[in-house]
Design a protein around this nucleic acid. Structure first.
Lengths: 248, 248
DNA sequence: CGTTTCAATATGTATATACATAATCGCCAC
DNA sequence: GTGGCGATTATGTATATACATATTGAAACG
């Protein structure tokens, strides 16, 4: 994993062809338009589509392969890979997938939903400079009958106006946001924390029990989209990530 | 960040020139032979050194730049980047750097050192199939006068025989290993935990206080090298990582 | 009918080349 | 001096080309 790599997914201005091919394909994959297993166009087809040389297409596809988004097979073509569960933990953090991987039934339950003009705290969390409307959500993810994680989320309505019309009663905002907002960058903060009374109550653990806290801020093309805090009871959760020195 | 990208750093057999340039340079940087700020050879110099075209060199350097290991400046050349504290946290996890980034004096103190034939627990932690000698180390990292992290480490002596001759009294095994063993892959497990009596005593915190635990297993060309567990008091530490959907 | 062989195909890697772009250095005029 | 301007230099991106390599599918053969 390379970790601090930064790249913008701009619409279509000054970016190189290579970047454009990359983000076009990446978006098709992340949005689900090209599901896992789907064969993406051959190099010579993309060469025609983008009117460029095969080398340019090849560089972009090789990069996607190195990133693990696609798999390339000689003579057969290139295919969208199955999402790797370990990467999902840190990259997408879809709790439904985590829970179902444990073989437990998943359920989401909304605890709270408020819409307000952003206060200073909201802006600090989201990394916003100007004021604007935000949506605050709190909900519980269940694995079977037991609470699995508590989610506290802020959504920047200036970036995702449609979110104001959603109740998020039984679906978490995470899966809803993916596909609607192609994220270009995310920052994770991971720490340990003692559960206070409120958290202990929600998660059905003792006050003071250790929790793992994962906070994520997401941007889409420079605009802050959402800030989310997942709180896991310590005993229920381990994050796993594999790295190579520099994705070479 | 890409996360599940896997690549082997083999010696010099069937790998492409591009890969060889990549790992040569990466190793020089990770080992410290080329410290941060060092100007790495110009493309045309590497072209001469490896007797290949500039495109090949350029591809390798671009990749290192994308990975954040080097920084490229037009007209000036390419330079080894200062270790990004955020990336370092997860990638290298050099605690000295973390502590010094806080502006505090760093010190390491060995608590324990045992050499033994591996037992079942050791083999499970290291991911070893056969028995062999291992080195067990425990030590404390200090930031100023306060304990900053507790380190519990196992080293596979079959992979790093020289470690048997080292005392590791005042230097941690981590920095010692880097440079001697180019690691090709690492796996992190991150979780929260309540401090037991022993840990609380070492770290000078209360029993039951939440701790952040980071475990890392490292491989070098398929061989398990070391397993290390860092235990941080919760209030002193947050891991930060930035990601892009697929380092494009 | 099964097996071997071979040609077709898509990707993998490398080359030489060309032009664009950004940053720096040194020269020259003021 | 010093401020600006142009030449130089290293990287950034793209092209056309060439050959290697793995895999597939079909033809040839026993």
């Amino acid at each position: 994993m390379s970790l601090v790599v930064t790249e913008d997914i701009e619409s279509g201005e000054n970016i190189s062809l290579h970047q454009r091919i990359l983000s076009d394909i990446r978006e098709k994959i992340l949005s689900g338009a090209w599901p896992p297993g789907h064969r993406i166009p051959f190099e010579h087809e993309l060469t025609a589509e983008y009117d460029c040389s095969r080398m340019t297409v090849n560089k972009a596809l090789s990069q996607l392969a190195k990133a693990g988004l696609i798999e390339r097979r000689r003579r057969s073509g290139s295919f969208v890979r199955q999402p790797q569960s370990q990467a999902a933990v840190l990259e997408l953090h879809d709790i439904r997938i985590e829970v179902e991987a444990l073989g437990l039934p998943y359920r989401y339950e909304r605890l709270e939903r408020v819409q307000r003009r952003s206060n200073a705290g909201d802006r600090a969390l989201l990394g916003l400079s100007a004021a604007g409307s935000v949506l605050g959500l709190e909900g519980l993810h269940f694995a079977g009958e037991r609470p699995f994680a508590l989610e506290q989320r802020l959504i920047n309505l200036s970036a995702v106006a449609e979110a104001a019309d959603e109740a998020f009663l039984e679906i978490a905002a995470g899966p809803w946001l993916i596909g609607r907002v192609p994220w270009s960058e995310a920052e994770h903060r991971i720490r340990a924390m003692a559960a206070d009374d409120t958290i202990a109550d929600s998660l059905d653990i003792d006050t003071g029990a250790p929790c793992l806290v994962v906070e994520r801020r997401t941007w889409s093309a420079e605009h802050p989209v959402t800030h989310v805090r997942f709180i896991y009871p310590a005993e229920s959760h381990t994050l796993v990530a594999r790295f190579t020195p520099s994705q070479g």
